[in-house]
Nucleic acid binder design. Structure first.
Lengths: 152, 152
DNA sequence: GTGTTTGCAAAGTGTTTGCAATTTA
DNA sequence: TAAATTGCAAACACTTTGCAAACAC
């Protein structure tokens, strides 16, 4: 049985990135890129989402795909939390709010922040990227409650 | 046998932070804070350093102490690499170069960067902190060598 | 003395990897 | 058919935790 090329814009983007449009990658890329919305995912959240669409994909494949997509420039990795990796479908220059309570990311448009007076990088090195993370929280309670360490 | 209070500036800082100046915490705090230099450590690097001074401290205790020191305001945690946590003895407002090749941090003085036009945080939240990470690298080789993925 | 801290080893997280089976082109 | 990809389970690196022994005050 002859199977023709998979057709569609997403398949083309994968091919253009040098990635075979397999069933798994198509499902992942579709969730991530199909509607053009800016999305922030973790491996776990993406895995959940794809399975909710009844596509069987292993978590290992999700991790692999996220890195392949990132290397191909389809995604960008955002480091904001030591505990897990985030990937952003918006690969243009921009910064982030990071909500430390809900552990969620919000894009700040590239023009939203001016970083000025960047010092020279140390000799022999070049600036690869400038990341600005604005950490936000629900305001701390004012009233009597004493401040106790919160379980991590 | 009566043992008096441990004396010394470091011991006092620990007490002021509500932490008993135990042998382990004293050794860790001394390495970190005694000479007033700005230092960036990981649990692993600090553990190595303290042991090099022939003080027996378990890695678990180093982790615990780093968090206790951080909660007490003696240190500041810096998130730049998903693979490990960094702690900075400089708790004042400032930003960082992060050398992705050597995985090392370099302080940028508070005045070294201007972040302007910060947008309003989402309703109900407040800005807890603004982190700027300038990622630096050795410039990519220009010559013929093809670009292959580097093992992580 | 009594509550705190330590160290160990075990458990936990998120992530990566080796490899046989499967799939793509 | 040949090469790329997948899934599983095991391995990993880093970090946290339960608990008895050691320690600070």
């Amino acid at each position: 049985m002859i199977r023709p090329h998979v057709h569609g814009a997403i398949a083309d983007r994968l091919r253009a990135a040098g990635l075979r449009p397999t069933r798994q990658r198509l499902a992942l890329a579709t969730v991530l890129l199909a509607d053009g919305r800016d999305r922030h995912v973790t491996a776990e959240s993406l895995h959940r989402e794809v399975r909710a669409r009844d596509v069987a994909v292993s978590l290992a494949t999700v991790y692999n795909a996220l890195h392949q997509f990132t290397n191909a420039g389809l995604l960008r990795e955002v480091v904001v939390d030591a505990a897990r990796s985030y990937f952003d479908t918006n690969t243009t220059h921009h910064h982030h709010f990071y909500d430390e309570d809900s552990r969620s990311l919000i894009d700040i448009p590239g023009s939203g922040i001016d970083v000025a007076h960047l010092p020279e990088p140390p000799p022999g090195s070049e600036i690869a990227q400038v990341d600005v993370v604005v950490r936000i929280r629900r305001p701390a309670q004012a009233a009597g409650a004493s401040v106790r360490g919160s379980k991590r």
